[in-house]
Structures are given as C-alpha cells and as structure tokens.
Design a protein around this nucleic acid. Structure first.
Length: 483
RNA sequence: GGCCCCUUGGUCAAGAGGUUAAGACAUCGCCCUUUCACGGCGGCGACACGAGUUCGAUUCUCGUAGGGGUCACCA
C-alpha cells in the first residue's frame, strides 16, 4: 500500500473560514493517522481575487492550530513548487490533450458565451452547456487564429453520451449523464489553469492519494474523473464533506461575524477547543467522550464517523466545549493561558495568583470572561449596602456590620496568611458562635469585592488579596455600614 | 428549472430490520455549597410524510415534501 498523501489547498482570498479550517483538520488528521504526508498548496490561479497577505494568514492560522505541513511553499519538498502560479505545468499538459484530440482551442468571446447562456436560459433549456462552437474547427483554421494571436482558452472534449461514475468514500458510487457535462475550460485566456484543471494536474503530480474537500465539489467530481481518465492517471480517493451552516437555510458566512477562525480567537475561545468543536461538526467519535486535543483527534478520527448532512453551527455547544477544555487544563497551563487576560484589569503583583487561578478555572467559559471577573482586585469600587442583603444567608447590613466587626480581629490574628489558615481561623469562630457559615462569609465577600458574584468565596478572596488589603477592605466595609 | 446529495429531540449526533431509540450541548428540577460556578442525580424532548418489501421497519425500496449543492475564462 502506498503512503497516504493529503493536501490542504486554499486560495489566498482572505481569512480562514471555519469550514475551510475543518477541511484542513481532516486532511491533516488523515495523513498523520497513517504516518503519511500532509501538504500545503496555494491555489492562486485567480489573479483577480488574490488578496495581499492572505498567504501569511494561512500560514499563521495553520501554525497556531498546530496543523504542521510536511511540504509547502515555505519549506519546499520533492514535488514543488507549491504555489500554483509558480508551477509551469498546466499549459503543456493541456496541449498534450489537444494533441491527443481530447481537448481543443476555443476562440469564443465572452460576449458570444454570454449570449449563448442568455439564449439557453430564455429557451428554458434544462441542460446549459457550451455549444461546441469551436469543438471541431478545422486544423488550418485553428492554426490561422492561433498565429493571429486570437485570445483563446483550451477546453476538454466531454463525451456526449453515456455516463460517468465516480466513487466517494462517504457517498459511494455516483453516476451522472455525460451530456450534462460541459466542455470544461482547462486553460483560461490569461494562460492560467482553471481550478478544475490545476487541481487534477497537481494532485496527480504531487502524488495525492486522498482528496478531502467541500461538498460543493461533489457535482464536479465526474468531470475530474474524466480528466484523470483522459491522462490515464490513477484517481485519488474522494471524501466530500458537508457544509457548516448558520441555520438550516444558510451557510456560515462572513456576514455572520463568526465564520472565521480569527473571530473566535478574538471572542475568547481557546484554540484547541475551536479545533475540537469544528472537528465535531460533521463527525462523530466512536465512544462517549467528545473532548479531544488535536493529537487525540488523530488517534480517534475515523472516516466512517463523517456525516453526509450539513451541520448547524452552535456557539453554545462550542462555548461549553471551550469551558471544558479550560477546566481540564493543568493548573500551570491554565495559568499561562489566563494570565494575559487577568492582566488586562488586574495589574497588582502582590496577590496570590495561584489561589486566583484555582478559583477562576471552573468559572471561565470564554477567556474574555476573565477581565471582568478579576477587576475588583485592583480597585474596590463603590458598592451599595444592599449587597449585604442575602435571604438564603439570612444577612442584611445590620448583621453584616456585626459579622465584619467579628471578622476583623480574627483576620488580624492570622499570622501565616494563606487560604487554609484563614479558613480555620474563621471557622473556629463560626463554630464557637454557632452561626451559619454565610452569616460571616457573605459579608466578608461583599466587603472584599464589592460584588455579588466573585471567583471564589470570602476566604479565597482574602487569600488572593493578602492580609493588609483584606483588612483594609473589611475596615472600609465597617466604616460604610457604621455611618 | 435540469442534475446530484441530504432528512433521528431546539442543536450536534449514536444507531446498520426486532433497542425501554444512546450520549453531548441547551432547557427544567433536585442535591452539594460561603455567592456564582464546578460536580452529582433526575425530568422534558426525536426517527418529515405516504406507499411497498417483511412476521416485524428509524433501519431496505419507491414516491412526496422540505433543505442543501451545482449548472463561470471563481475556487
């Protein structure tokens, strides 16, 4: 069995669409799974749609995701170049087909084609294909036009009858009538190959064994087979994956503001979680677990788990998976990921970061949740006495004042300031007095944070803030309640 | 419109003729608890429709409906 070689072949037309990234993930996994090669090829044959910087964006995104390629434009490889505009192979291959009578020069103007299409549409023709105007031009006429420098394209001669069957790993055999197949253009008037042609030629020349691509190419696959057959080349395995949808009617698009990889990073999604979620859109693992790192996906992935129907993108599920990834991170890794977000609103360095991290980790869904959650650390904002009301804790401003007055000397008595010691000091007093935990601890949290929702309870907050600052805030609370 | 593909709860989905039709997210309730989370337990909720094949169809076949894709010198 030959080594599996897959490729990701984006066009440099802008940002990395999530659907595109998913294709990249699947192709990467397929190669890695079998110890094969993953190749990056840039398909820039459409000079008009080329976007400056888009290639770098592709590199960045793939690297950020850990989808490392074995061959590509930047690192080269045995079958380069890996940028189509630098590959000088298409015209000669097309001309080979012309020489063999399998393709022909077409001199039809854009205007004539437009008219043709308009007429076909008006006549309500079910089958709208090129009418073969140039298909059988006499050889001397072709030569004359060529010599005169007449603009032209090269088209493939499609069979007019019979059927063509292609095989897709997911969909099985699909058969189409040849008469609906257009004499497809191989080489454009500007001398560049069309996607359809370049793709086939390059996949062959680069030894690609498995082609993963979007479902929109399913109806073109028969044409690709005909091209492979014209050359006498082996046909790779096709795996067409369905689209990612915004809803049942619409594909995820730039208009939604969340169709690009970068959008999600900006929204606070953790990269491994993004990969995990989009891998899950249209693919189901064998077991119950669905939280995977990229390496685990490589282990777990199987083509048989791919779905044939479109999947609707669900940001809630993605958020849940994000939270789960963050929760599962070892303390230090979460710390490294979270710290930049903490530092957006919390610059103090004299706090117990590790206690904060521990308190924060189970409470973060998106990384962008963090700044708001820790903003009380640097500055205690003005807060209303009403915060001391808590029905369940049976506290109110009056009992809170009493509690804070009890708490203050206890905190002052804690010599070795850490969570454990604060806890035992406070709970000793709670037991001694036979009061509810909340009677003491709810007021403490409010006094320390000025917020009803905090990462951790009063004891953790005290540990985070440090002895001095904690006592200062308790005093401030007492003062506020006394006046 | 022609051709191709798809159709299990709100969403992702397992399931491959006989199942109490999994699981996850969301949602609701309870427990745990110094808030909120986390965690635990439980509830609600689905085989698009119609024929056929079969002792028996979510599962196979054919229709219908709905949805998607495609019919470019774009990829």
């Amino acid at each position: 069995m030959n080594k599996i070689r897959t490729r990701f072949a984006p066009s440099p037309t802008g940002f990395m669409h999530i659907g595109n990234l998913r294709t990249a993930i699947y192709t990467y996994i397929l190669a890695r799974k079998s110890g094969g090669d993953f190749i990056l090829r840039i398909e820039d044959t459409d000079t008009e749609r080329y976007v400056e910087g888009a290639v770098e964006k592709i590199y960045d995104t793939l690297r950020t995701c850990g989808l490392n390629w074995d061959e590509g434009p930047d690192i080269g490889g045995p079958v380069g170049p890996y940028i189509q505009s630098e590959r000088d192979v298409y015209v000669k291959h097309a001309e080979q087909l012309v020489a063999e009578g399998k393709a022909y020069y077409c001199f039809c103007t854009k205007e004539r084609l437009d008219e043709l299409h308009a007429a076909q549409k008006a006549a309500n023709l079910s089958n709208r294909t090129y009418d073969g105007h140039c298909r059988d031009l006499p050889a001397d006429e072709v030569k004359r036009l060529l010599d005169a420098g007449t603009p032209h394209v090269i088209r493939q001669k499609m069979p007019k009858e019979g059927t063509t069957t292609f095989h897709d790993v997911l969909y099985g055999d699909i058969t189409v009538e040849n008469e609906i197949l257009d004499d497809q253009i191989l080489i454009k008037a500007d001398g560049m190959p069309t996607y359809n042609f370049a793709n086939v030629v390059d996949d062959h020349l680069m030894g690609i064994t498995h082609v993963v691509r979007g479902n929109e190419y399913l109806s073109s696959a028969a044409k690709y087979n005909l091209l492979y057959e014209a050359f006498g080349w082996d046909i790779p395995e096709y795996i067409h994956v369905e689209h990612i949808m915004r809803d049942a009617q619409h594909k995820l698009s730039k208009r939604d503001g969340d169709a690009y990889f970068g959008d999600f990073v900006e929204k606070g999604f953790y990269v491994p979680a993004i990969i995990n979620y989009i891998a899950l859109l249209g693919w189901a693992p064998k077991g119950e677990n669905e939280i995977f790192t990229l390496d685990e996906l490589v282990q777990e992935f199987d083509i048989s788990g791919l779905s044939k129907s479109p999947a609707i993108f669900d940001i809630q599920k993605m958020t849940a998976i994000n939270a789960e990834h963050l929760r599962r991170l070892p303390h230090d890794e979460f710390k490294a990921v979270a710290l930049p977000y903490i530092r957006q609103t919390c610059k103090r360095t004299d706090i117990d970061v590790d206690v904060l991290i521990k308190a924060l980790q189970p409470r973060v869904e998106l990384l962008t949740d963090i700044p708001e959650k820790v903003d009380f650390i640097d500055t205690l904002r003005e807060y209303s006495d009403d915060l001391y009301f808590n029905k369940k804790m049976k506290t109110d401003p009056e009992t809170a004042l009493e509690a804070l007055n009890i708490i203050k000397p206890i905190l002052e008595g804690v010599t070795d300031w850490n969570e454990e010691n604060i806890h035992s000091a406070l709970f000793a007093e709670i037991e001694k007095r036979g009061v509810k935990n909340g009677f003491m601890l709810w007021p403490l949290r409010v006094a320390l944070s000025g917020k009803p929702l905090t990462p951790g309870g009063g004891i953790e907050l005290a540990a985070i803030l440090g002895k001095e600052e904690s006592i200062r805030r308790v005093e401030k609370g007492i003062e506020q309640l006394t006046k």
